[in-house]
Write a protein that binds this DNA or RNA. Sequence first.
DNA 1: CATTGGTATTTAGTCAGACAAATAGCGATC
DNA 2: GATCGCTATTTGTCTGACTAAATACCAATG
Lengths: 267, 267
Amino acid sequence: MTGGDAVLAISGGGVGKAKGSGADGEFEREEGFSGRIHGSIARTLGIAIVSGQYQPGDVLNNEIDASEQLHVSRSAYREAIRILAAKGLVESRPKAGTRVSARSRWSLLDPEVLAWFFEAEPSEEFLTGLHELRMIVEPAAAALAAERRDDAQLERMRTALIQMQQHTLATEAGRAADRDFHDTVLEATSNEPLRTLSSSIGAAVRWTTIFKQRDRELARDPIPDHWKVFDAIAAGRADQARQAMERLVGLAQDDTRAAISRRSPSA
Amino acid sequence: MTGGDAVLAISGGGVGKAKGSGADGEFEREEGFSGRIHGSIARTLGIAIVSGQYQPGDVLNNEIDASEQLHVSRSAYREAIRILAAKGLVESRPKAGTRVSARSRWSLLDPEVLAWFFEAEPSEEFLTGLHELRMIVEPAAAALAAERRDDAQLERMRTALIQMQQHTLATEAGRAADRDFHDTVLEATSNEPLRTLSSSIGAAVRWTTIFKQRDRELARDPIPDHWKVFDAIAAGRADQARQAMERLVGLAQDDTRAAISRRSPSA
DNA sequence: CATTGGTATTTAGTCAGACAAATAGCGATC
DNA sequence: GATCGCTATTTGTCTGACTAAATACCAATG
Protein backbone atom coordinates (compact mmCIF):
# COMPACT_ATOMS: atom_id res chain seq x y z
CA MET A 1 0.00 0.00 0.00
CA THR A 2 1.18 3.45 -0.61
CA GLY A 3 1.67 5.21 2.64
CA GLY A 4 -1.14 6.36 4.80
CA ASP A 5 -3.31 8.68 2.88
CA ALA A 6 -5.84 11.14 3.98
CA VAL A 7 -9.15 10.02 2.76
CA LEU A 8 -12.64 11.18 2.31
CA ALA A 9 -12.10 14.71 3.34
CA ILE A 10 -15.02 16.85 2.61
CA SER A 11 -14.70 20.41 1.59
CA GLY A 12 -16.18 22.95 3.91
CA GLY A 13 -19.89 23.35 3.92
CA GLY A 14 -19.47 26.99 3.15
CA VAL A 15 -18.45 28.17 -0.23
CA GLY A 16 -15.38 29.88 -1.40
CA LYS A 17 -13.09 27.79 0.69
CA ALA A 18 -10.36 26.49 -1.43
CA LYS A 19 -9.74 22.83 -0.99
CA GLY A 20 -7.31 23.01 1.83
CA SER A 21 -7.60 21.53 5.25
CA GLY A 22 -6.04 18.25 5.95
CA ALA A 23 -9.23 16.78 7.16
CA ASP A 24 -8.49 13.16 7.31
CA GLY A 25 -9.92 9.84 8.04
CA GLU A 26 -8.54 6.42 7.95
CA PHE A 27 -10.10 3.97 5.64
CA GLU A 28 -9.94 0.27 5.35
CA ARG A 29 -12.23 -1.83 3.32
CA GLU A 30 -12.01 -5.01 5.28
CA GLU A 31 -14.87 -5.70 7.57
CA GLY A 32 -18.29 -6.41 6.27
CA PHE A 33 -17.31 -6.06 2.68
CA SER A 34 -20.16 -6.98 0.45
CA GLY A 35 -18.35 -8.56 -2.42
CA ARG A 36 -18.94 -5.98 -5.10
CA ILE A 37 -16.83 -2.91 -4.75
CA HIS A 38 -19.54 -0.43 -5.60
CA GLY A 39 -21.68 -2.04 -2.93
CA SER A 40 -19.06 -1.82 -0.23
CA ILE A 41 -18.21 1.76 -1.11
CA ALA A 42 -21.88 2.66 -0.96
CA ARG A 43 -22.11 0.95 2.39
CA THR A 44 -19.05 2.73 3.75
CA LEU A 45 -20.26 6.13 2.63
CA GLY A 46 -23.82 5.35 3.65
CA ILE A 47 -22.78 4.51 7.18
CA ALA A 48 -20.65 7.62 7.34
CA ILE A 49 -23.65 9.69 6.31
CA VAL A 50 -26.35 8.20 8.52
CA SER A 51 -24.00 8.16 11.49
CA GLY A 52 -23.58 11.90 11.16
CA GLN A 53 -19.95 11.78 10.10
CA TYR A 54 -21.00 13.76 7.06
CA GLN A 55 -23.71 16.29 7.68
CA PRO A 56 -26.48 17.25 5.30
CA GLY A 57 -25.18 19.96 3.04
CA ASP A 58 -21.60 18.76 3.16
CA VAL A 59 -19.96 18.41 -0.19
CA LEU A 60 -18.04 15.23 -0.92
CA ASN A 61 -14.71 15.32 -2.63
CA ASN A 62 -14.87 15.33 -6.36
CA GLU A 63 -15.07 11.97 -8.03
CA ILE A 64 -11.47 11.83 -9.13
CA ASP A 65 -10.00 12.57 -5.72
CA ALA A 66 -12.50 10.44 -3.86
CA SER A 67 -12.05 7.41 -6.06
CA GLU A 68 -8.28 7.78 -5.83
CA GLN A 69 -8.36 7.97 -2.07
CA LEU A 70 -10.55 4.90 -1.90
CA HIS A 71 -8.27 3.09 -4.33
CA VAL A 72 -11.08 2.30 -6.71
CA SER A 73 -11.85 3.35 -10.22
CA ARG A 74 -14.02 6.35 -10.87
CA SER A 75 -16.74 4.21 -12.41
CA ALA A 76 -16.99 2.01 -9.33
CA TYR A 77 -17.17 5.10 -7.16
CA ARG A 78 -19.81 6.64 -9.39
CA GLU A 79 -21.96 3.53 -9.18
CA ALA A 80 -21.73 3.72 -5.42
CA ILE A 81 -22.87 7.33 -5.57
CA ARG A 82 -25.79 6.35 -7.81
CA ILE A 83 -26.86 3.85 -5.17
CA LEU A 84 -26.73 6.47 -2.45
CA ALA A 85 -28.55 8.95 -4.65
CA ALA A 86 -31.26 6.39 -5.36
CA LYS A 87 -31.81 6.12 -1.63
CA GLY A 88 -32.00 9.87 -1.27
CA LEU A 89 -28.81 10.23 0.75
CA VAL A 90 -26.91 12.39 -1.71
CA GLU A 91 -27.52 14.56 -4.73
CA SER A 92 -24.98 15.40 -7.39
CA ARG A 93 -24.92 18.07 -10.02
CA PRO A 94 -22.22 19.16 -12.42
CA LYS A 95 -19.92 21.80 -11.08
CA ALA A 96 -21.76 21.80 -7.77
CA GLY A 97 -20.44 18.41 -6.75
CA THR A 98 -22.11 15.70 -4.72
CA ARG A 99 -23.62 16.76 -1.45
CA VAL A 100 -25.39 15.04 1.38
CA SER A 101 -29.13 15.60 1.10
CA ALA A 102 -31.41 16.90 3.81
CA ARG A 103 -32.50 14.22 6.24
CA SER A 104 -36.09 14.59 5.13
CA ARG A 105 -35.08 13.14 1.77
CA TRP A 106 -33.45 10.04 3.14
CA SER A 107 -35.26 6.77 2.54
CA LEU A 108 -35.19 5.83 6.20
CA LEU A 109 -37.34 2.78 5.65
CA ASP A 110 -35.12 1.30 3.00
CA PRO A 111 -33.70 -2.00 4.25
CA GLU A 112 -30.12 -1.10 3.44
CA VAL A 113 -30.32 2.38 4.90
CA LEU A 114 -31.85 0.89 8.00
CA ALA A 115 -29.03 -1.63 8.20
CA TRP A 116 -26.50 1.20 7.91
CA PHE A 117 -28.27 2.99 10.73
CA PHE A 118 -27.97 -0.05 12.94
CA GLU A 119 -24.34 -0.54 11.99
CA ALA A 120 -23.45 2.11 14.46
CA GLU A 121 -25.71 2.00 17.48
CA PRO A 122 -28.79 3.95 16.51
CA SER A 123 -29.86 7.00 18.46
CA GLU A 124 -32.56 6.66 21.08
CA GLU A 125 -34.67 9.14 19.18
CA PHE A 126 -34.55 7.05 16.05
CA LEU A 127 -35.43 3.91 17.92
CA THR A 128 -38.37 5.65 19.51
CA GLY A 129 -39.58 6.79 16.13
CA LEU A 130 -39.40 3.27 14.78
CA HIS A 131 -41.37 1.95 17.71
CA GLU A 132 -44.01 4.57 17.27
CA LEU A 133 -44.33 3.56 13.66
CA ARG A 134 -44.70 -0.03 14.77
CA MET A 135 -47.34 0.97 17.26
CA ILE A 136 -49.28 2.63 14.49
CA VAL A 137 -48.90 0.04 11.77
CA GLU A 138 -48.91 -3.33 13.43
CA PRO A 139 -52.22 -3.24 15.29
CA ALA A 140 -53.97 -2.04 12.14
CA ALA A 141 -52.19 -4.72 10.15
CA ALA A 142 -53.27 -7.38 12.61
CA ALA A 143 -56.86 -6.27 12.20
CA LEU A 144 -56.64 -6.50 8.44
CA ALA A 145 -54.87 -9.83 8.68
CA ALA A 146 -57.68 -11.22 10.77
CA GLU A 147 -60.05 -10.49 7.94
CA ARG A 148 -57.92 -11.55 5.03
CA ARG A 149 -55.42 -14.19 6.04
CA ASP A 150 -55.52 -17.47 4.21
CA ASP A 151 -54.80 -20.86 5.65
CA ALA A 152 -51.23 -21.05 4.46
CA GLN A 153 -50.40 -17.76 6.13
CA LEU A 154 -52.08 -18.87 9.31
CA GLU A 155 -50.03 -22.03 9.24
CA ARG A 156 -46.86 -20.04 8.75
CA MET A 157 -47.70 -17.93 11.77
CA ARG A 158 -48.35 -20.98 13.88
CA THR A 159 -45.10 -22.70 13.00
CA ALA A 160 -43.25 -19.44 13.55
CA LEU A 161 -44.61 -19.21 17.07
CA ILE A 162 -43.82 -22.82 17.76
CA GLN A 163 -40.29 -22.30 16.54
CA MET A 164 -40.09 -19.22 18.65
CA GLN A 165 -40.97 -20.92 21.89
CA GLN A 166 -38.80 -23.89 21.08
CA HIS A 167 -35.67 -21.88 20.42
CA THR A 168 -36.45 -18.91 22.66
CA LEU A 169 -35.39 -15.40 21.81
CA ALA A 170 -31.89 -16.10 23.06
CA THR A 171 -31.05 -17.84 19.81
CA GLU A 172 -30.91 -16.41 16.35
CA ALA A 173 -33.34 -19.05 15.16
CA GLY A 174 -35.86 -17.89 17.72
CA ARG A 175 -35.48 -14.27 16.76
CA ALA A 176 -35.82 -15.16 13.10
CA ALA A 177 -39.07 -16.93 13.90
CA ASP A 178 -40.26 -13.84 15.75
CA ARG A 179 -39.56 -11.65 12.75
CA ASP A 180 -41.17 -14.23 10.51
CA PHE A 181 -44.34 -14.07 12.53
CA HIS A 182 -44.59 -10.30 12.30
CA ASP A 183 -43.69 -10.39 8.63
CA THR A 184 -46.40 -12.90 7.89
CA VAL A 185 -48.96 -10.73 9.63
CA LEU A 186 -47.99 -7.88 7.33
CA GLU A 187 -48.18 -10.17 4.33
CA ALA A 188 -51.60 -11.40 5.35
CA THR A 189 -53.01 -7.90 4.97
CA SER A 190 -52.83 -8.42 1.21
CA ASN A 191 -51.66 -4.86 1.07
CA GLU A 192 -48.41 -4.52 -0.84
CA PRO A 193 -47.48 -1.00 0.20
CA LEU A 194 -48.07 -1.99 3.79
CA ARG A 195 -45.94 -5.04 3.46
CA THR A 196 -43.03 -2.93 2.32
CA LEU A 197 -42.77 -1.77 5.91
CA SER A 198 -41.81 -5.23 7.07
CA SER A 199 -38.10 -4.43 6.92
CA SER A 200 -38.61 -1.43 9.17
CA ILE A 201 -40.81 -3.34 11.53
CA GLY A 202 -38.35 -6.17 11.50
CA ALA A 203 -35.55 -3.81 12.45
CA ALA A 204 -37.54 -2.52 15.38
CA VAL A 205 -38.37 -6.04 16.45
CA ARG A 206 -34.76 -7.08 16.24
CA TRP A 207 -33.58 -4.23 18.42
CA THR A 208 -36.30 -4.72 20.93
CA THR A 209 -35.16 -8.25 21.54
CA ILE A 210 -31.52 -7.23 21.57
CA PHE A 211 -32.19 -4.78 24.34
CA LYS A 212 -34.22 -7.31 26.18
CA GLN A 213 -31.43 -9.81 25.99
CA ARG A 214 -28.97 -7.33 27.34
CA ASP A 215 -31.12 -6.63 30.28
CA ARG A 216 -32.37 -9.93 31.49
CA GLU A 217 -34.14 -8.52 34.46
CA LEU A 218 -36.73 -7.06 32.18
CA ALA A 219 -37.19 -10.25 30.34
CA ARG A 220 -40.88 -10.77 30.10
CA ASP A 221 -42.15 -13.78 28.27
CA PRO A 222 -43.75 -12.48 25.09
CA ILE A 223 -44.97 -15.84 23.88
CA PRO A 224 -48.41 -15.77 25.45
CA ASP A 225 -49.09 -12.34 24.00
CA HIS A 226 -48.05 -13.59 20.60
CA TRP A 227 -50.49 -16.46 20.87
CA LYS A 228 -53.28 -14.10 21.72
CA VAL A 229 -52.62 -12.20 18.53
CA PHE A 230 -52.52 -15.43 16.62
CA ASP A 231 -55.76 -16.70 18.11
CA ALA A 232 -57.58 -13.51 17.25
CA ILE A 233 -56.30 -13.58 13.68
CA ALA A 234 -57.20 -17.25 13.38
CA ALA A 235 -60.68 -16.54 14.68
CA GLY A 236 -61.09 -13.67 12.26
CA ARG A 237 -61.74 -11.19 15.06
CA ALA A 238 -60.26 -7.98 13.69
CA ASP A 239 -60.82 -5.81 16.70
CA GLN A 240 -59.51 -8.38 19.11
CA ALA A 241 -56.43 -8.86 16.94
CA ARG A 242 -55.84 -5.13 16.94
CA GLN A 243 -56.01 -4.94 20.70
CA ALA A 244 -53.83 -7.96 21.24
CA MET A 245 -51.18 -6.61 18.91
CA GLU A 246 -51.44 -3.24 20.56
CA ARG A 247 -50.63 -4.80 23.89
CA LEU A 248 -47.83 -6.88 22.45
CA VAL A 249 -46.12 -3.96 20.77
CA GLY A 250 -46.78 -1.70 23.71
CA LEU A 251 -45.03 -4.03 26.11
CA ALA A 252 -42.08 -4.35 23.76
CA GLN A 253 -41.92 -0.59 23.58
CA ASP A 254 -41.93 -0.31 27.36
CA ASP A 255 -39.18 -2.85 27.73
CA THR A 256 -37.01 -1.15 25.16
CA ARG A 257 -37.55 2.22 26.75
CA ALA A 258 -36.66 0.85 30.16
CA ALA A 259 -33.53 -0.79 28.84
CA ILE A 260 -32.46 2.41 27.14
CA SER A 261 -33.01 4.62 30.14
CA ARG A 262 -31.15 2.15 32.25
CA ARG A 263 -28.20 2.23 29.92
CA SER A 264 -28.06 5.99 29.73
CA PRO A 265 -30.06 7.39 32.64
CA SER A 266 -30.49 10.80 31.19
CA ALA A 267 -33.48 13.09 31.18
CA MET B 1 -35.95 -25.95 -11.99
CA THR B 2 -38.85 -23.69 -11.53
CA GLY B 3 -40.20 -21.69 -14.36
CA GLY B 4 -37.81 -22.86 -16.96
CA ASP B 5 -38.17 -20.19 -19.57
CA ALA B 6 -35.43 -17.68 -19.47
CA VAL B 7 -37.06 -14.70 -20.99
CA LEU B 8 -34.98 -12.13 -22.67
CA ALA B 9 -36.58 -8.97 -21.86
CA ILE B 10 -35.46 -5.93 -23.66
CA SER B 11 -36.55 -5.26 -27.19
CA GLY B 12 -35.06 -7.11 -30.04
CA GLY B 13 -37.32 -10.06 -30.41
CA GLY B 14 -39.02 -10.35 -27.14
CA VAL B 15 -41.85 -8.76 -25.40
CA GLY B 16 -42.11 -5.04 -25.33
CA LYS B 17 -42.13 -3.64 -28.77
CA ALA B 18 -43.29 -0.27 -27.74
CA LYS B 19 -40.31 1.42 -29.31
CA GLY B 20 -38.96 1.03 -32.75
CA SER B 21 -38.68 -2.62 -33.46
CA GLY B 22 -35.72 -2.58 -35.79
CA ALA B 23 -32.27 -3.05 -34.49
CA ASP B 24 -31.49 0.53 -35.33
CA GLY B 25 -34.75 2.10 -34.33
CA GLU B 26 -33.78 5.65 -33.54
CA PHE B 27 -36.12 6.95 -31.00
CA GLU B 28 -35.44 10.09 -29.13
CA ARG B 29 -35.34 10.06 -25.42
CA GLU B 30 -38.58 11.23 -23.97
CA GLU B 31 -38.42 14.93 -23.46
CA GLY B 32 -38.96 17.14 -20.53
CA PHE B 33 -37.03 15.62 -17.70
CA SER B 34 -33.98 14.09 -16.30
CA GLY B 35 -31.18 15.39 -18.42
CA ARG B 36 -28.95 12.66 -17.09
CA ILE B 37 -28.99 9.60 -19.24
CA HIS B 38 -28.64 7.10 -16.45
CA GLY B 39 -31.67 8.66 -14.81
CA SER B 40 -33.85 8.42 -17.87
CA ILE B 41 -32.77 4.86 -18.57
CA ALA B 42 -33.56 3.91 -15.00
CA ARG B 43 -36.93 5.57 -15.38
CA THR B 44 -37.68 3.80 -18.65
CA LEU B 45 -36.75 0.41 -17.28
CA GLY B 46 -38.39 1.15 -13.95
CA ILE B 47 -41.68 1.95 -15.62
CA ALA B 48 -41.41 -1.15 -17.75
CA ILE B 49 -40.93 -3.22 -14.63
CA VAL B 50 -43.60 -1.78 -12.37
CA SER B 51 -46.09 -1.77 -15.21
CA GLY B 52 -45.63 -5.48 -15.60
CA GLN B 53 -43.98 -5.32 -18.99
CA TYR B 54 -41.12 -7.25 -17.42
CA GLN B 55 -42.18 -9.84 -14.89
CA PRO B 56 -40.34 -10.78 -11.72
CA GLY B 57 -37.83 -13.46 -12.62
CA ASP B 58 -37.34 -12.22 -16.16
CA VAL B 59 -33.73 -11.83 -17.18
CA LEU B 60 -32.73 -8.63 -18.91
CA ASN B 61 -30.47 -8.69 -21.90
CA ASN B 62 -26.81 -8.62 -21.09
CA GLU B 63 -25.28 -5.22 -20.55
CA ILE B 64 -23.58 -4.99 -23.91
CA ASP B 65 -26.65 -5.79 -25.97
CA ALA B 66 -28.96 -3.74 -23.78
CA SER B 67 -26.79 -0.66 -23.83
CA GLU B 68 -26.38 -0.98 -27.57
CA GLN B 69 -30.09 -1.23 -28.12
CA LEU B 70 -30.69 1.81 -25.98
CA HIS B 71 -27.94 3.69 -27.77
CA VAL B 72 -26.07 4.48 -24.60
CA SER B 73 -22.72 3.45 -23.24
CA ARG B 74 -22.40 0.47 -21.03
CA SER B 75 -21.39 2.62 -18.06
CA ALA B 76 -24.50 4.75 -18.32
CA TYR B 77 -26.62 1.63 -18.55
CA ARG B 78 -24.86 0.10 -15.58
CA GLU B 79 -25.48 3.18 -13.47
CA ALA B 80 -29.14 2.92 -14.35
CA ILE B 81 -29.14 -0.70 -13.22
CA ARG B 82 -27.47 0.29 -9.95
CA ILE B 83 -30.31 2.73 -9.34
CA LEU B 84 -32.92 0.06 -9.99
CA ALA B 85 -31.04 -2.41 -7.81
CA ALA B 86 -30.88 0.14 -4.99
CA LYS B 87 -34.65 0.34 -5.12
CA GLY B 88 -34.99 -3.41 -5.04
CA LEU B 89 -36.40 -3.76 -8.55
CA VAL B 90 -33.59 -5.88 -10.00
CA GLU B 91 -30.69 -8.01 -8.87
CA SER B 92 -27.62 -8.80 -10.89
CA ARG B 93 -24.96 -11.44 -10.55
CA PRO B 94 -22.10 -12.44 -12.81
CA LYS B 95 -22.99 -15.05 -15.33
CA ALA B 96 -26.56 -15.13 -14.11
CA GLY B 97 -27.37 -11.73 -15.54
CA THR B 98 -29.71 -9.07 -14.24
CA ARG B 99 -33.18 -10.20 -13.33
CA VAL B 100 -36.31 -8.55 -12.07
CA SER B 101 -36.72 -9.14 -8.34
CA ALA B 102 -39.79 -10.48 -6.60
CA ARG B 103 -42.41 -7.84 -5.94
CA SER B 104 -41.97 -8.22 -2.22
CA ARG B 105 -38.50 -6.74 -2.59
CA TRP B 106 -39.59 -3.63 -4.42
CA SER B 107 -39.37 -0.37 -2.50
CA LEU B 108 -42.94 0.53 -3.22
CA LEU B 109 -42.84 3.57 -1.00
CA ASP B 110 -39.83 5.09 -2.69
CA PRO B 111 -40.83 8.40 -4.29
CA GLU B 112 -39.39 7.52 -7.67
CA VAL B 113 -40.81 4.02 -7.75
CA LEU B 114 -44.14 5.50 -6.82
CA ALA B 115 -43.84 8.03 -9.62
CA TRP B 116 -43.08 5.23 -12.07
CA PHE B 117 -46.14 3.41 -10.86
CA PHE B 118 -48.27 6.42 -11.56
CA GLU B 119 -46.66 6.95 -14.94
CA ALA B 120 -48.84 4.25 -16.32
CA GLU B 121 -52.23 4.34 -14.68
CA PRO B 122 -51.87 2.40 -11.45
CA SER B 123 -53.97 -0.64 -10.76
CA GLU B 124 -57.04 -0.31 -8.62
CA GLU B 125 -55.59 -2.77 -6.17
CA PHE B 126 -52.48 -0.69 -5.71
CA LEU B 127 -54.49 2.47 -5.21
CA THR B 128 -56.61 0.73 -2.62
CA GLY B 129 -53.52 -0.39 -0.78
CA LEU B 130 -52.15 3.11 -0.72
CA HIS B 131 -55.39 4.45 0.64
CA GLU B 132 -55.49 1.85 3.32
CA LEU B 133 -52.00 2.84 4.33
CA ARG B 134 -53.14 6.43 4.45
CA MET B 135 -56.10 5.46 6.57
CA ILE B 136 -53.78 3.79 9.02
CA VAL B 137 -51.03 6.36 9.17
CA GLU B 138 -52.64 9.76 8.84
CA PRO B 139 -55.10 9.68 11.73
CA ALA B 140 -52.38 8.48 14.06
CA ALA B 141 -50.05 11.14 12.70
CA ALA B 142 -52.67 13.82 13.27
CA ALA B 143 -52.98 12.73 16.88
CA LEU B 144 -49.24 12.93 17.41
CA ALA B 145 -49.10 16.25 15.62
CA ALA B 146 -51.70 17.66 17.96
CA GLU B 147 -49.40 16.94 20.86
CA ARG B 148 -46.11 17.97 19.33
CA ARG B 149 -46.59 20.60 16.65
CA ASP B 150 -44.79 23.87 17.13
CA ASP B 151 -46.05 27.28 16.13
CA ALA B 152 -44.18 27.43 12.87
CA GLN B 153 -45.68 24.16 11.73
CA LEU B 154 -49.11 25.30 12.75
CA GLU B 155 -48.61 28.43 10.75
CA ARG B 156 -47.52 26.44 7.74
CA MET B 157 -50.66 24.34 7.96
CA ARG B 158 -52.83 27.41 8.19
CA THR B 159 -51.32 29.12 5.17
CA ALA B 160 -51.51 25.85 3.25
CA LEU B 161 -55.23 25.64 3.87
CA ILE B 162 -55.73 29.27 2.96
CA GLN B 163 -53.82 28.73 -0.27
CA MET B 164 -55.88 25.66 -0.86
CA GLN B 165 -59.21 27.39 -0.65
CA GLN B 166 -57.96 30.35 -2.64
CA HIS B 167 -56.70 28.33 -5.57
CA THR B 168 -59.07 25.38 -5.23
CA LEU B 169 -58.06 21.87 -6.10
CA ALA B 170 -58.60 22.58 -9.77
CA THR B 171 -55.22 24.27 -9.96
CA GLU B 172 -51.81 22.80 -9.41
CA ALA B 173 -51.11 25.45 -6.79
CA GLY B 174 -54.13 24.32 -4.83
CA ARG B 175 -53.16 20.71 -5.02
CA ALA B 176 -49.62 21.55 -3.94
CA ALA B 177 -51.04 23.34 -0.93
CA ASP B 178 -53.11 20.27 -0.12
CA ARG B 179 -50.06 18.06 -0.21
CA ASP B 180 -48.17 20.63 1.81
CA PHE B 181 -50.78 20.48 4.53
CA HIS B 182 -50.65 16.73 4.82
CA ASP B 183 -46.88 16.78 4.66
CA THR B 184 -46.65 19.29 7.47
CA VAL B 185 -48.88 17.15 9.64
CA LEU B 186 -46.46 14.29 9.15
CA GLU B 187 -43.54 16.56 9.92
CA ALA B 188 -45.21 17.80 13.08
CA THR B 189 -45.14 14.31 14.52
CA SER B 190 -41.40 14.80 15.08
CA ASN B 191 -41.04 11.22 13.96
CA GLU B 192 -38.56 10.88 11.14
CA PRO B 193 -39.42 7.37 10.02
CA LEU B 194 -43.05 8.36 9.92
CA ARG B 195 -42.29 11.42 7.89
CA THR B 196 -40.63 9.31 5.26
CA LEU B 197 -44.09 8.15 4.31
CA SER B 198 -45.05 11.60 3.14
CA SER B 199 -44.17 10.80 -0.45
CA SER B 200 -46.48 7.82 -0.41
CA ILE B 201 -49.21 9.74 1.31
CA GLY B 202 -48.67 12.56 -1.12
CA ALA B 203 -49.07 10.21 -4.03
CA ALA B 204 -52.35 8.93 -2.67
CA VAL B 205 -53.52 12.48 -2.08
CA ARG B 206 -52.60 13.51 -5.58
CA TRP B 207 -54.52 10.69 -7.17
CA THR B 208 -57.51 11.20 -5.00
CA THR B 209 -57.83 14.74 -6.25
CA ILE B 210 -57.13 13.72 -9.82
CA PHE B 211 -60.00 11.28 -9.73
CA LYS B 212 -62.19 13.85 -8.13
CA GLN B 213 -61.39 16.34 -10.82
CA ARG B 214 -62.25 13.86 -13.51
CA ASP B 215 -65.55 13.19 -11.98
CA ARG B 216 -66.93 16.53 -11.03
CA GLU B 217 -70.23 15.13 -9.87
CA LEU B 218 -68.51 13.66 -6.90
CA ALA B 219 -66.79 16.87 -6.06
CA ARG B 220 -67.30 17.33 -2.40
CA ASP B 221 -65.74 20.34 -0.77
CA PRO B 222 -62.97 18.98 1.42
CA ILE B 223 -61.98 22.34 2.87
CA PRO B 224 -64.23 22.30 5.94
CA ASP B 225 -62.97 18.86 6.90
CA HIS B 226 -59.42 20.07 6.55
CA TRP B 227 -60.13 22.96 8.89
CA LYS B 228 -61.55 20.61 11.46
CA VAL B 229 -58.31 18.68 11.46
CA PHE B 230 -56.39 21.90 11.74
CA ASP B 231 -58.47 23.20 14.61
CA ALA B 232 -58.02 20.01 16.57
CA ILE B 233 -54.28 20.05 16.03
CA ALA B 234 -54.13 23.72 16.96
CA ALA B 235 -56.10 23.02 20.12
CA GLY B 236 -53.82 20.15 21.01
CA ARG B 237 -56.70 17.68 21.10
CA ALA B 238 -55.10 14.47 19.93
CA ASP B 239 -58.18 12.31 19.87
CA GLN B 240 -60.25 14.89 18.12
CA ALA B 241 -57.52 15.34 15.53
CA ARG B 242 -57.43 11.61 14.93
CA GLN B 243 -61.15 11.43 14.37
CA ALA B 244 -61.24 14.46 12.11
CA MET B 245 -58.43 13.07 10.00
CA GLU B 246 -60.13 9.73 9.92
CA ARG B 247 -63.19 11.28 8.43
CA LEU B 248 -61.22 13.37 5.97
CA VAL B 249 -59.28 10.41 4.65
CA GLY B 250 -62.32 8.20 4.71
CA LEU B 251 -64.29 10.54 2.52
CA ALA B 252 -61.40 10.83 0.10
CA GLN B 253 -61.23 7.07 0.00
CA ASP B 254 -64.93 6.83 -0.75
CA ASP B 255 -64.71 9.37 -3.52
CA THR B 256 -61.80 7.63 -5.14
CA ARG B 257 -63.49 4.29 -4.93
CA ALA B 258 -66.64 5.68 -6.46
CA ALA B 259 -64.74 7.32 -9.28
CA ILE B 260 -62.88 4.12 -10.00
CA SER B 261 -65.93 1.92 -10.06
CA ARG B 262 -67.60 4.46 -12.27
CA ARG B 263 -64.74 4.36 -14.70
CA SER B 264 -64.55 0.60 -14.83
CA PRO B 265 -67.84 -0.77 -13.52
CA SER B 266 -66.55 -4.20 -12.79
CA ALA B 267 -67.49 -6.46 -9.95
C1' DC C 1 -24.43 -45.57 -14.60
C1' DA C 2 -23.55 -42.08 -11.49
C1' DT C 3 -20.18 -39.04 -9.65
C1' DT C 4 -16.63 -36.19 -9.75
C1' DG C 5 -13.53 -32.78 -11.27
C1' DG C 6 -11.68 -29.71 -14.34
C1' DT C 7 -12.28 -26.52 -18.14
C1' DA C 8 -14.60 -23.45 -21.35
C1' DT C 9 -17.86 -19.89 -21.64
C1' DT C 10 -20.72 -16.33 -20.38
C1' DT C 11 -21.71 -12.47 -17.77
C1' DA C 12 -21.28 -8.77 -14.56
C1' DG C 13 -17.53 -6.27 -12.40
C1' DT C 14 -13.56 -3.26 -12.60
C1' DC C 15 -10.30 -0.36 -14.59
C1' DA C 16 -8.13 3.48 -17.42
C1' DG C 17 -8.25 7.71 -19.92
C1' DA C 18 -10.45 10.85 -22.86
C1' DC C 19 -13.99 14.09 -24.17
C1' DA C 20 -18.62 16.49 -23.60
C1' DA C 21 -22.01 19.11 -21.15
C1' DA C 22 -23.56 21.85 -17.63
C1' DT C 23 -23.34 25.33 -14.31
C1' DA C 24 -21.77 27.99 -10.13
C1' DG C 25 -19.14 31.71 -9.28
C1' DC C 26 -16.81 35.65 -10.65
C1' DG C 27 -15.48 39.49 -13.13
C1' DA C 28 -16.74 42.83 -16.53
C1' DT C 29 -20.06 45.81 -17.89
C1' DC C 30 -23.88 48.96 -17.86
C1' DG D 1 -26.08 47.86 -7.63
C1' DA D 2 -27.93 44.86 -10.88
C1' DT D 3 -27.23 42.30 -15.01
C1' DC D 4 -24.76 39.71 -18.27
C1' DG D 5 -21.38 36.72 -20.08
C1' DC D 6 -17.27 34.15 -19.45
C1' DT D 7 -14.59 30.40 -17.59
C1' DA D 8 -13.00 26.95 -14.62
C1' DT D 9 -14.56 23.06 -12.26
C1' DT D 10 -17.22 19.06 -11.77
C1' DT D 11 -20.23 15.60 -13.05
C1' DG D 12 -21.73 13.10 -17.13
C1' DT D 13 -20.71 10.10 -21.02
C1' DC D 14 -18.15 7.25 -23.99
C1' DT D 15 -14.74 3.68 -25.46
C1' DG D 16 -12.37 -0.51 -25.05
C1' DA D 17 -9.92 -3.55 -22.52
C1' DC D 18 -9.18 -6.74 -18.82
C1' DT D 19 -10.69 -9.42 -14.34
C1' DA D 20 -13.37 -12.36 -11.64
C1' DA D 21 -17.08 -15.18 -10.66
C1' DA D 22 -20.63 -18.38 -11.67
C1' DT D 23 -22.51 -21.66 -14.57
C1' DA D 24 -22.65 -25.32 -18.03
C1' DC D 25 -20.44 -28.70 -20.21
C1' DC D 26 -17.70 -32.67 -20.82
C1' DA D 27 -14.44 -35.96 -19.93
C1' DA D 28 -12.24 -38.91 -16.74
C1' DT D 29 -13.18 -41.86 -13.09
C1' DG D 30 -15.35 -45.02 -9.48
